[in-house]
């Protein structure tokens, strides 16, 4: 076995272990940590596939921010019961917005899939990636950022709603 194969096996097993922990652990903290392990192993895979930028962004965004938020929520839920004081009167609106968001995400995927070929070279360097995002993939890129903006606005609206009552 070459060194690359050994490293791949290690991270593949770690990632699988993390995924199993997410599914089967009883305590939410361990679920979150299993997810973290899975994300970090996935980042290692990206780096081994010559996409260092994607791998590092995976660590910063998913492992560094999103799992921290999960832990944050778990900590807060431990302090008080989450379901009793949740107001679900905006359900219809939320469902509608979620539907639009999902459909636009689907549109992004379809657009990307129907493009003739993936032009990212084998090197996958940040400069090349940025160039492609602002030329060939400009529309899906901007659509994705619009989707994120919608999500942020929804979060603010929901947060404000609780504040007024």
């Amino acid at each position: 076995m070459t060194l690359t194969a050994v490293i791949f096996t290690i991270f593949a097993l770690l990632g699988l272990w993390g995924a199993l922990v997410v599914l089967f652990a009883k305590r939410p903290v361990y679920n979150a940590l299993g997810l973290l392990l899975n994300f970090v192993s996935l980042a290692a895979m990206y780096i081994m596939l010559n996409a260092p930028f994607l791998g590092v962004i995976q660590i910063i965004v998913y492992s560094g921010a999103i799992v921290v938020f999960f832990l944050f929520v778990i900590m807060i839920l431990n302090l008080r019961d989450p379901l009793t004081d949740m107001d679900l009167s905006f359900k219809g609106l939320a469902a509608f917005i979620m539907m639009i968001a999902t459909l636009s995400l689907l549109g992004v995927y379809l657009y990307v899939i129907k493009l003739p070929s993936w032009k990212l070279g084998p090197e996958g360097s940040p400069a090349r990636l940025g160039e492609l995002l602002l030329t060939d993939y400009l529309i899906p890129f901007e659509l994705a950022s619009l989707l994120l903006l919608v999500a942020i606005v929804i979060a603010v609206v929901i947060g404000k709603k609780g504040e007024e009552q």
Binding site: V56, I59, I60, S63, V68, P126
Partner: peptide, 8 residues
């Protein structure tokens, strides 16, 4: 970016 990731 790797540094930012490690710090996170």
């Amino acid at each position: 970016l790797l540094l930012l990731g490690i710090s996170a």
